[in-house]
Nucleic acid binder design. Structure first.
Lengths: 155, 155
DNA sequence: CTCCTGAGTAAACTAGCTTTACTCCTGTGA
DNA sequence: TCACAGGAGTAAAGCTAGTTTACTCAGGAG
């Protein structure tokens, strides 16, 4: 064998694996007609998916300033993926909620992810895939503790 | 158990794991006195480490335009991490090579990575770590084939 | 009321690229 | 020998996706 990957640092292995999976994911989602959406928009949908949130809450979950979150919301609103509705607690608060269009994107993105994971499973074998997931979960628990890391990766 | 990570998509698991490891790596390298260097500079050092390269070659390996590579080289040169020397093949070519200062950074970064991997190994157990590495290598081989992905991740 | 806090917005700035458009140098072929 | 094609490098402007600074507005506590 003498695989150069055997001697590659864990950090690089993780980076390459993530990069490959993400690139493939983005490629397929774009091919499904979502060229106007970047990964961060999908992450925003994840945050908003159950009941919505204010843009300040969104900012915190995404790890950006609230101005940046405001720009993202405006971008998504222009294109019909979110609506701003009244917030139950009043004040200046506005609740950002997903439209059907965004729900559909979530469905497509979920399907693409599951297909991608299935393809990886075919190559690795089902037990290996389960093992990989377990090891990754263990690593994440070990480094992050109880609170999961913020959604938005920063390079 | 009922761990929410069990139901998390593989793509997210990889992203979180990479994010956590990278953040910790960056934090420790900065603490060692390298606040002026970003991850891409470390990647450039990896490309240049054995015999150097022209900035066009560097651009290709990093996945950026040659202008961007030129800017990176200029930044590193100002701070004493690289030198531009005559290129054996002449023309307008200039060979960008590392200084001792950059070699020292490579040593420190390597040590930090190995310590980080060792800490992950302690939590996971040595066999688990080996397994994780094997699964990741398999995933990378499966998705990338023979040619490894470019160094620079694009989000 | 007044003042404080937190939500939201506006405008200017910034980093880190890319695009466009050159200037050099050298090897090739008429 | 001499145009000229092509690759290396540089310069300047433009772009994207954010941050910083500085406000306005709404409600609640005292």
């Amino acid at each position: 064998m003498n695989d150069p990957l055997e001697r590659t640092e864990l950090t690089f292995l993780l980076g390459m694996a993530f990069q490959l999976v993400l690139t493939e994911f983005v490629r397929e989602v774009e091919a499904a007609g979502y060229e106007e959406l970047r990964p961060i928009h999908g992450l925003a949908f994840q945050v908003l998916r159950h009941g919505g949130a204010t843009s300040s809450e969104l900012a915190e979950r995404l790890g950006v300033t609230k101005q940046a979150a405001g720009q993202i919301v405006a971008y998504l609103e222009e294109r019909g993926y979110v609506r701003r509705v009244e917030h139950a607690e009043g004040g200046r608060r506005r609740l950002v909620v997903l439209t059907d269009r965004a729900e559909k994107h979530l469905a497509v993105a979920g399907r693409v992810m599951r297909e991608l994971e299935a393809r990886v499973g075919e190559r690795l074998g089902p037990d290996e895939l389960t093992l990989l997931r377990t090891e990754l979960a263990g690593l994440i628990r070990g480094l992050a503790g109880a609170d999961l890391p913020p959604l938005r990766p920063i390079w």
